[in-house]
Simulated assay, not measured.
Amino acid sequence: MENIIQLNNVKKIYRMGDEKIYALKNVDLSIKQGEFICLLGTSGSGKSTLLNLMAGLEKPTKGEIIIKNKSIEKMNEKQLAKFRQENIGFVFQSYNLLPMLTAIENVSLPLIFRGVSKKNRIKAAAKMLQSVGLGDRLNHKPSEMSGGQQQRVSIARAFISKPSIVFADEPTGNLDTKTTLDIMELITNFARQSNQTLIIVTHDIEISHYADKVVYIKDGEIERIEEQNQRGII
């Protein structure tokens, strides 16, 4: 199975006045198509920075990030935006739903960029919302839904266009334990069904149990990588 993501000697340095802050140091990482990877580390470890670089939301200070055989660090903003629209989905801790739009309108947004007709967008979005258990919330706005319901809308939006890769940054950070388990089941099931690559950032060891591979991040470096079967969780 070929790598869908390859990082070679990636560094990220932030400057604060005369001071340099090394958020990531010489990171090498390979991720295969269909793998579920968990980036695990404490706050400030560099895990979210690593996700942002792979998602093309930030540029590395040094190094190469290859996704689907393309070096994304060489792309300009317009090229990156198009690449993300065609290949990447996002699930955020804070949901990032547009408050003035209904659930069905939020979920259908990625399909606008794909040139899908309004009729087909609405049909597909309704089907996705049904699949995440929100068939009775199609016309509700975010303010009319619970946190768990909003995250289900966010998941439906992330997966509706069947992107090759889905990035999730602390997707259950604002949820209770039961809702967390429900959300993780949804995310993993969607990814497995379509052989999508799933990369989740978390500080929660319980969330990491869902992954094929756990990448431990500490002080901007990969401390170690563990396969689930090595950890006795299969």
Rank of each mutant, 00 (worst) to 15 (best):
S43M: 10
G44S: 06
S45H: 10
S45K: 13
G46D: 05
S48H: 03
T49K: 07
L51W: 06
L51M: 15
N52P: 03
L53N: 00
L53Q: 04
M54S: 05
M54C: 11
A55R: 08
K59V: 11
P60K: 05
T61V: 08
G63Y: 09
I65F: 01
N69S: 11
K70V: 10
S71D: 14
I72F: 04
K74I: 11
M75Y: 10
N76L: 12
N76D: 15
K78Q: 04
Q79M: 03
L80M: 15
L80V: 09
A81T: 15
A81H: 01
A81P: 00
K82V: 09
Q85V: 07
Q85P: 00
E86L: 10
E86P: 02
N87M: 08
G89H: 13
G89I: 15
F90H: 05
F90M: 10
F90V: 13
V91M: 02
V91L: 04
V91F: 09
Q93M: 12
Y95C: 06
N96S: 03
L97M: 12
L98Y: 12
L98P: 00
P99S: 12
P99F: 14
M100R: 13
L101I: 14
L101Y: 14
T102Q: 03
A103L: 11
I104M: 04
N106F: 15
V107F: 11
L111A: 04
I112G: 01
I112M: 09
F113I: 06
F113V: 01
R114V: 02
S117E: 08
S117H: 02
N120Q: 12
K123F: 10
K123H: 04
A125Y: 08
A125D: 05
A125S: 12
A125T: 12
L129R: 06
L129D: 00
V132P: 01
V132M: 04
L134Q: 00
D136P: 02
R137T: 02
R137Q: 09
R137I: 09
H140V: 08
H140Q: 02
P142N: 05
E144M: 14
G147Q: 01
G147H: 02
G148Y: 06
S154I: 14
I155Q: 03
I155Y: 06
K162M: 10
P163V: 08
S164N: 14
S164W: 12
V166A: 05
F167M: 10
T172G: 04
N174F: 07
L175Y: 09
D176S: 07
D176M: 07
